[in-house]
Amino acid sequence: MEFVALDFETANKSRNSACSIGLVTVKDGRIVDEYYQLIRPKYLYFDPDNIAVNSITQEMVLDKPGFKELWPEILPRLQNKQVVAHFAKFDVNVLRSTLETYYLPLPDFDFLCSWLLAKQAFPFLERFSLDYVAAYVGFKFQHHQALDDARACAAIVNAVLAKTPAQDFRQLAALYKLQCGEVRRSGVTLCEQQPEVPPEEPIMESLF
């Protein structure tokens, strides 16, 4: 199976403030491509809280390309791929908001959330943060560095895949009662846990 792990870091609380991206392509359990870039956000405001988390400052990105310039390198790594991110709702929304900022169309790909996947595959864990789950599967990394976070996400998915016969993300989602997310030019459908279907009540026979 081939998939791509994605991670963004942002300059502030706005989802269109991507300041770094990490992409890791995995094929048959092995990393075959890695991509990392610092990104100059369109609006140069770096929140101190974000800097404290990811250590990326305005000075570090002043001479870096903007997302629009990087998109020709990023798009082929996402288009028609199977993509995964830890708490994917965040990363997919960063991608969507940043593309909207530059009036660029959405790509087409299916995606899974490794946070939701870990909750289903390893329900006995106390927490499901990226660092905690990665430690459980034996992967050491530098948290909140986009490429390392993408590698950790990939390691988690590889650990889950090793337990299953799934041949693609839709089969993997079905095995763990998840709805596979979709990014399409027309919009985004998030990866979510499938709702529990209550058992049907027995139909009482008519007494008359």
Rank of each mutant, 00 (worst) to 15 (best):
residue 47 D to N: 15
residue 152 A to C: 06
residue 74 I to Y: 05
residue 53 V to L: 13
residue 99 L to Y: 05
residue 174 A to N: 15
residue 114 S to V: 06
residue 69 E to C: 10
residue 157 V to D: 10
residue 51 I to G: 05
residue 91 D to H: 00
residue 187 G to L: 04
residue 11 A to E: 07
residue 83 V to S: 02
residue 95 L to C: 10
residue 48 P to F: 04
residue 9 E to P: 01
residue 99 L to H: 06
residue 109 F to P: 06
residue 7 D to K: 09
residue 182 E to S: 09
residue 187 G to P: 01
residue 175 L to I: 15
residue 86 H to V: 12
residue 49 D to L: 15
residue 171 Q to H: 11
residue 161 L to M: 15
residue 137 V to A: 00
residue 153 C to Q: 08
residue 164 T to E: 13
residue 144 H to E: 11
residue 11 A to N: 07
residue 57 T to Y: 04
residue 121 A to M: 12
residue 139 F to T: 11
residue 206 S to D: 13
residue 144 H to S: 10
residue 116 L to Y: 05
residue 2 E to R: 07
residue 159 A to V: 11
residue 47 D to C: 10
residue 86 H to N: 12
residue 123 P to R: 08
residue 195 P to A: 14
residue 95 L to P: 02
residue 127 R to Q: 13
residue 31 I to W: 00
residue 23 L to D: 08
residue 206 S to V: 13
residue 178 L to T: 05
residue 116 L to K: 07
residue 197 V to R: 08
residue 96 R to E: 14
residue 97 S to Y: 02
residue 119 K to D: 06
residue 137 V to S: 00
residue 21 I to A: 02
residue 153 C to F: 01
residue 17 S to A: 14
residue 34 E to M: 05
residue 138 G to Y: 03
residue 160 V to A: 02
residue 137 V to I: 08
residue 44 L to F: 03
residue 165 P to D: 15
residue 141 F to A: 08
residue 12 N to K: 03
residue 62 L to N: 01
residue 143 H to E: 07
residue 207 L to T: 15
residue 146 A to I: 00
residue 35 Y to S: 03
residue 121 A to P: 09
residue 207 L to K: 09
residue 92 V to K: 03
residue 156 I to F: 01
residue 173 A to E: 13
residue 160 V to G: 09
residue 192 E to Y: 04
residue 8 F to V: 03
residue 181 G to L: 03
residue 83 V to K: 04
residue 187 G to D: 09
residue 33 D to C: 04
residue 175 L to K: 11
residue 1 M to N: 07
residue 26 V to Y: 04
residue 172 L to D: 06
residue 125 L to E: 00
residue 6 L to Y: 10
residue 132 Y to L: 10
residue 155 A to Y: 01
residue 159 A to C: 00
residue 54 N to K: 05
residue 115 W to G: 03
residue 71 W to N: 12
residue 38 L to R: 05
residue 155 A to R: 01
residue 77 R to N: 09
residue 126 E to N: 10
residue 207 L to A: 14
residue 92 V to C: 01
residue 51 I to H: 04
residue 196 E to T: 13
residue 80 N to F: 12
residue 27 K to E: 14
residue 102 Y to K: 02
residue 152 A to E: 09
residue 108 D to V: 12
residue 34 E to H: 02
residue 189 T to R: 08
residue 126 E to K: 10
residue 121 A to C: 06
residue 183 V to Q: 04
residue 166 A to H: 01
residue 135 A to M: 01
residue 184 R to H: 03
residue 182 E to D: 11
residue 168 D to W: 04
residue 74 I to H: 02
residue 175 L to T: 12
residue 136 Y to R: 06
residue 25 T to Q: 12
residue 81 K to M: 14
residue 123 P to V: 11
residue 168 D to N: 15
residue 90 F to A: 09
residue 142 Q to D: 07
residue 136 Y to H: 14
residue 116 L to G: 11
residue 113 C to G: 08
residue 131 D to A: 14
residue 59 E to F: 00
residue 92 V to I: 15
residue 69 E to H: 08
residue 155 A to H: 02
residue 123 P to E: 12
residue 178 L to P: 07
residue 106 L to F: 04
residue 192 E to Q: 12
residue 133 V to G: 01
residue 126 E to R: 13
residue 118 A to I: 07
residue 94 V to S: 08
residue 84 V to L: 08
